[in-house]
Amino acid sequence: MRTAMTFSPDGRRNAADLHDSSSFDHVGRDAGADFAAGRVLADLADADPRIVVGCADLTYVTRLSTFGARHPRRFLYYGISERNMIGAAAGLATTGHIPYVCTFACFSAILAYENIRTDLAYPQVPVRILATHAGISMGFFGTSHHATEDIAALRAVAGLTVLSPCDPVATEAMLRATVGHDGPIYFRIGRGREKAVYTDPTQLRLDRPTTLTQGGDVLLLATGVMVQEALAAAATLATDGIGATVVDVHTLKPFPRTVIAELAAAHSSVVTVEEHTIEGGLGTLTVEALAAAGVGTPVHKHGLRDEFAIIGPPTHLYQYYGLDPHGIATVVRRMHEHRARTPLVSEPLWTPDDRAAVLAARS
């Protein structure tokens, strides 16, 4: 029997008896999440009357209820009407407002791609899209709710800034730093379960990626939730004598091409990690940057290949696709071993056999 859903005094749903730690609380999936945006925007709106927030049927799961409770007349609820919400936000922006609109990444970047392109980017209006639950973090909900193509699609939209914070502190830093930005911004946000990477918002600068650890062998470039996984992988690799420099590539457009090329030139190999297809995302951006700078360091792109993700608990999917610390460390090790034999690595370094082993362990 399903437990009745109740609400706590702060407006959050109480799902105390519905937890499943292996699947990010599939039933009570908003319990314990921290998206930062609701509270940060509420604080910013205290001093800036231009800020308004729109939500598409996700008030509680995205924590925008915090903003709605403090600024009810500036909180707009659109229901399951994401494309309409983005179009309405464009209109609000033309009247002097700064609209922030929030929905899952699959519904903003994929479903409403045309609205982002034509309603926001073409007229260059200051609308900010808070695209939560990016990548495969919606697990059980399947392909319609996965967003593994959004970086590739949106990087092609002229005049659109694409930011990918890795934790709530990074999200807060980016929100505060971009209030006055003239054009539209796409914030690619995870599921609110990200481990802390930053302790201070001032650690992060939008004009360059953040180097989190230093190592002499492999440059490990990650974005979004994969940053925490890359850091854990680097700690494991250190015990094997492999030094990995871990870099948080939080600004995907405009891409910091010069800095990335300089970092790559100082290492023997590069591995990019993204909760996204390897076609057109962080890996492709990196390869393009190195080619433009004439840097010959070999790059291996790690993420989903030419495929749609299977359905299952998000944490299990990360293991299946090698996007957990074990999988990332395995890929880096193999890249390091390949480099000792040949500079060219063309085959996948997380193999079908690795995926089969994950399934076997789960059966």
Rank of each mutant, 00 (worst) to 15 (best):
L304W: 02
M5F: 03
D57E: 15
T211W: 10
T6L: 04
R355D: 03
P168I: 03
D25Y: 12
H326D: 14
V295Q: 07
Y198K: 04
T239R: 14
D306G: 08
L344T: 15
E194N: 10
D248K: 00
W350I: 09
V52W: 00
T213I: 07
A152L: 04
T132N: 15
N14V: 13
G215M: 06
T132S: 15
T118W: 12
Y318T: 06
R191Y: 03
P201F: 10
G312L: 04
K195E: 11
V247T: 09
T94Y: 10
A357L: 09
T245Q: 06
T202G: 01
P209F: 01
V271R: 06
S268G: 13
S108C: 14
Q124I: 00
S22A: 15
D10R: 13
Y78N: 06
V249W: 05
T103S: 15
I51E: 05
A36F: 04
P9K: 09
D43C: 01
A152N: 08
P298A: 01
F187C: 06
I136K: 03
E275C: 07
V270E: 08
A112F: 02
A234G: 08
D306M: 01
C55D: 15
I185T: 02
A153K: 12
V53G: 05
R13W: 05
T297Q: 00
I151L: 15
A233R: 00
V27D: 13
Y198T: 02
E229T: 02
V225W: 08
F24K: 01
G139V: 12
F308N: 00
A340L: 14
E288W: 00
F7C: 10
G79P: 04
E172M: 05
G280T: 11
I151Y: 07
V273D: 10
P254L: 07
L154W: 00
T330F: 06
L111Y: 14
T66L: 13
E307W: 00
A196I: 04
E279A: 11
T6V: 02
E279Y: 10
H26G: 14
L237Q: 09
V271D: 09
D20V: 06
F141C: 14
V299I: 09
E114C: 05
M85P: 09
G139M: 07
H19G: 07
G139Q: 08
L206D: 02
N84W: 01
A340T: 07
A292Y: 02
V249D: 01
L58M: 15
A177M: 03
G139Y: 05
A340N: 06
T277H: 09
L163R: 04
V249Q: 05
H146T: 12
I310A: 06
G281H: 01
Q228S: 14
R208I: 09
A33H: 07
G216P: 02
D48N: 12
S108E: 12
T277M: 11
I189Q: 15
A152V: 11
P209Q: 08
D43V: 09
A121W: 03
V52S: 04
P325K: 09
V127Q: 02
A291I: 13
A356E: 15
A36K: 03
M5A: 11
R188T: 03
A196V: 06
L323D: 04
R70E: 14
A147C: 15
F141W: 04
A340K: 10
G296I: 00
E279M: 14
E274W: 02
D10V: 05
H26A: 15
L212S: 02
T118F: 11
A15L: 13
T297K: 00
A112I: 08
